[in-house]
């Protein structure tokens, strides 16, 4: 069984007044195997953020099911959803979303503290994680004292520390310069190679070319997908560009 199974996903936004409604997701079907590194690409308004929000249980689908490790997201009670997110998902945001009231260390601990873990336990996990992410030096600093790349690495640490089933990343390189972007992508690849399942939403071809599989979403449906197979990053980059060109020209599936 796949780790993540999405079937017949539909999301309709209704305007509060009047009957106008927008169909953000029409019919999305795909699955992600354990240990995969999947990128979802699409233009603004294609529905990729909506999709990610539903996967992260931040939003509810109008129709369809999302199964994570056999659990149906739509059957989880509202009161339990935050807990579910905390225990099963790691989320990396475009804008880092680190809290300026906490040190980097405390920011990383946050989900564990919310889960009520013991401090010794948290520290053991961080000690293992910090060297791999290269953040040992900045743990005691506050977010305002560190660079964007460092912030994003801290955010990745926060996503990983709960040992989540899947890491969801929303445009993780969007707010970074190219050097930091490269470092972060290398980091994602590295954690994926350690067995972590990653699902990334992006419109950067370069970011997507790191993934083992790329899904293209357009007008609320999965339009196409490419497997990396044995391609190099460069070859993958080329393949993605071609597909994007095709999409832009309004090509049919």
């Amino acid at each position: 069984m796949s780790l993540l199974e999405v079937t017949g996903l539909k999301k309709i936004y209704k305007a509060r007044l009047g009957g106008t409604s927008v169909e953000a997701l029409k019919n999305v079907n795909f699955s992600v195997e354990k240990g995969e590194y999947v990128a979802i690409m699409g233009e603004s308004g294609s529905g990729k953020t909506t999709l990610l929000n539903i996967l992260a249980a931040l939003d509810r689908a109008t129709e369809g099911t999302v199964l994570l490790d056999g659990m149906n997201l739509s059957t989880i009670k509202d009161s339990a959803i935050a807990m579910f997110r905390r225990d099963n998902l790691g989320y990396v945001f475009q804008e880092f979303n680190l809290l300026d009231t906490f040190t980097v260390e405390d920011n990383i601990y946050l989900p564990l503290v919310l889960a009520g873990r013991r401090h010794a336990d948290m520290k053991a996990r961080l000690d293992k994680l910090a060297p791999a992410l290269g953040i040992t030096e900045i743990l005691k600093k506050y977010p305002y004292e560190i660079s964007g790349g460092q912030k994003q690495r801290a955010a990745v640490a926060r996503a990983l520390i709960t040992d989540p089933k899947i890491v969801l990343a929303d445009e993780p390189t969007g707010a970074l310069d190219s050097k930091s972007s490269d470092e972060l992508l290398a980091l994602f690849k590295q954690i994926n190679q350690l067995g972590q399942t990653v699902l990334m939403v992006t419109h950067s071809t370069k970011a997507a070319s790191n993934a083992s599989r790329v899904l293209f979403i357009k007008d609320g449906v999965i339009f196409h997908q490419i497997y990396k197979g044995n391609c190099t990053d460069q070859q993958m980059y080329q393949k993605i560009s071609d597909t994007l060109n095709l999409l832009a020209q309004g090509g049919e599936q």
Binding site: S79, M83, R85, R86, Y91, L110, L114, R158
Partner: peptide, 14 residues
């Protein structure tokens, strides 16, 4: 701030 914390797994009750 509370928005972020909710995303990271803070419940309404928290």
């Amino acid at each position: 701030r509370f928005g972020i914390m909710q995303k990271v797994g803070m419940t309404r009750e928290n």
